[in-house]
Nucleic acid binder design. Structure first.
Lengths: 231, 231
DNA sequence: ATATATATTAAACATTTGTTTGAATTTTGC
DNA sequence: GCAAAATTCAAACAAATGTTTAATATATAT
C-alpha cells in the first residue's frame, strides 16, 4: 500500500463525506458515491465491506480531528495562566468550534450536520463507539470546564445547560442547511429570511452572529438561574 | 360517501400518521402502510394519488387542530381579565403545547416529531403551504404575545429568542425519540441516561421537567438580556 | 521475469421501491 | 332489481437499491 494520495480508498472517503453530509445516509446511493469518486461501484464493497462501514469510517476519520480540535481549544483558554476564563468564554468556545466545523468540510459539505443528524436520528448507522469515543469526551470536557468556572454548579444542572446549548446549536445549523435546500429565488426562502433575517447573511456572518447570540443567551440564563457564589 | 368510521381512507390516514411519525417519510413503504391499515397496496394511490400526497394530508389533518389548540391556549392566558400574563407564562404555554402534542398522537406515535423532522429536513415532502399555513401563524401569534408582555422587545430580538426556544424544544423531543430507538436494556440507553438522567423518567414526567427547564432557562435569559423597562 | 497477491472492471443478482393495470366486487342512484 | 359508478384486489411493471461474481488488469515480491 503506497503513500500516494488520490488512491481509490481516499477518493471514496472524500466523496462520501461530502455527499453524506449534504444529503444524509439514506439519500446517497453507492452508484452516486462511485460516480463522484470516479471509481467502480464494486469499490465500496471491496474497500469498505459495505455502505454502513464506509459511513462509520467517514465519521471517525474526521470527527477524531474535530474532537481533538475542540478539546484543544478548550484547553487553550483553560490553561493560559494570563487568562482567567469565565463561563461566556467556555460557551463561546464550544459554540464556535461546533459551528466552524460546519465550514471546514471538503467539497463545501457540512460535516457537523452529519453528526447532528446522527445524534438525532433514531437509526444508528454510526459505530457503537461513536457515542463513547466522540460525544462523551467532548461533553465531559466541557462539563468539567463549566464546573471549573462555576464551582457551585452541580452535574445535574450542567446536563440541562448543555442540552439547551447543544439544542440551540443544532437548530441553527439545521436552519441554515434547510435554507440551502431551497432555490435561492423561491418563495420559501423569502419567507424564511423574512422570519429570520440572519439567514440572508453570508455563512461567516451567520456563524458569528449565531455564536454571539447563543453565548449571550445561555450565559445570561446561567448567570441568572445559578448565580455565582460571592467570594 | 358514508359517515361511517373505519373506512379505508381513514384507516390509511391513521396508520400513516403513526408510521410516518415513528419512522419518517422515507422509511415507511406503501406496503407497510397498507398492511398496517389492512387495505390493499393500491388503495394509497387510489385514494391519495401517491405517497407524498398522503403525507401532506396527514400533516394538514392533524396540524390544523394542533395549531388551533396552540393559538387557543395562548388566547386563553392573554384574554383572561383576571390574569396579568408574564413572559414565563407565554413561553410555558408554547413549550407545553408543543410537547403535549407529542403524546396526543394515536398509536403512540410522536406527531410533533413529524413536524420537527419536516422543519429540519432539507427535503420538502410537506405541501408548499405548510410553512405559510402552519408555522407562520403560530410564530406570529407568539411573537405578538411576547411583544405584548414585553413592549420593549423588537422583532429582531424576538426572532432570536424564538429560535433559541424552538431549538431547545426540538432537541428535547429528538432526544426522547432517539432513546426510544434503542433497546431498553442496551448499553447505549444506559449511557444516554447516565449523561442525561431525565431520560429515565416517564414521558409525562419528562415533559413536565423539560417544560420547566426551557421556561426557566429562556425566561432568565430574556429577563437578563432585555430587562423590562421600569414603569 | 515470473508467480503471487492486490485492485479494478462490467455484468448480473436478488430485493425493494412507488405505481399501474384490468378484472372482480361492492356500493350507489333510480 | 338493475345499470352505473365507486371501490377493492391480485398481479405485474419499471426503476432503483446494496451486493456479489468472475474475468481482467495492475502492482508487488522474490
Amino acid at each position: 500500500m503506497s503513500e500516494e494520495k488520490h488512491k481509490t480508498k481516499d477518493r471514496l472517503l472524500d466523496a462520501a463525506e461530502s455527499l453524506f453530509a449534504s444529503k444524509g445516509f439514506d439519500d446517497v446511493s453507492i452508484r452516486e458515491l462511485a460516480a463522484a469518486a470516479d471509481v467502480n461501484v464494486a469499490a465500496v464493497n471491496y474497500h469498505f465491506q459495505g455502505k454502513e462501514n464506509l459511513f462509520q469510517q467517514v465519521i471517525v476519520r474526521r470527527f477524531v480531528g474535530q474532537r481533538d480540535n475542540t478539546l484543544h481549544a478548550l484547553d487553550g483558554i483553560l490553561s493560559d495562566p494570563a487568562n482567567k476564563p469565565d463561563i461566556a468564554q467556555v460557551i463561546k468556545t464550544l459554540v464556535e468550534q461546533y459551528l466552524k466545523s460546519t465550514l471546514s468540510s471538503p467539497g463545501g459539505g457540512s460535516f457537523m450536520l452529519l453528526v447532528a443528524r446522527e445524534m438525532q436520528s433514531q437509526k444508528h448507522h454510526g459505530s457503537k463507539t461513536f457515542f463513547k469515543e466522540m460525544v462523551m469526551p467532548v461533553f465531559r470536557a466541557y462539563s468539567m470546564a463549566l464546573m471549573d468556572v462555576r464551582p457551585g454548579l452541580k452535574q445535574e444542572q450542567i446536563n440541562w445547560i448543555m442540552a439547551s446549548i447543544v439544542g440551540q446549536i443544532h437548530h441553527f445549523i439545521m436552519r441554515w442547511h434547510k435554507k440551502s435546500g431551497f432555490d435561492a429565488r423561491s418563495e420559501e426562502i423569502r419567507m424564511m429570511i423574512r422570519m429570520f433575517p440572519a439567514l440572508g447573511l453570508s455563512m461567516d456572518e451567520y456563524i458569528a452572529q449565531v455564536t454571539d447570540h447563543i453565548t449571550a443567551f445561555s450565559t445570561a440564563a446561567i448567570d441568572s438561574l445559578y448565580p455565582e457564589v460571592s467570594p
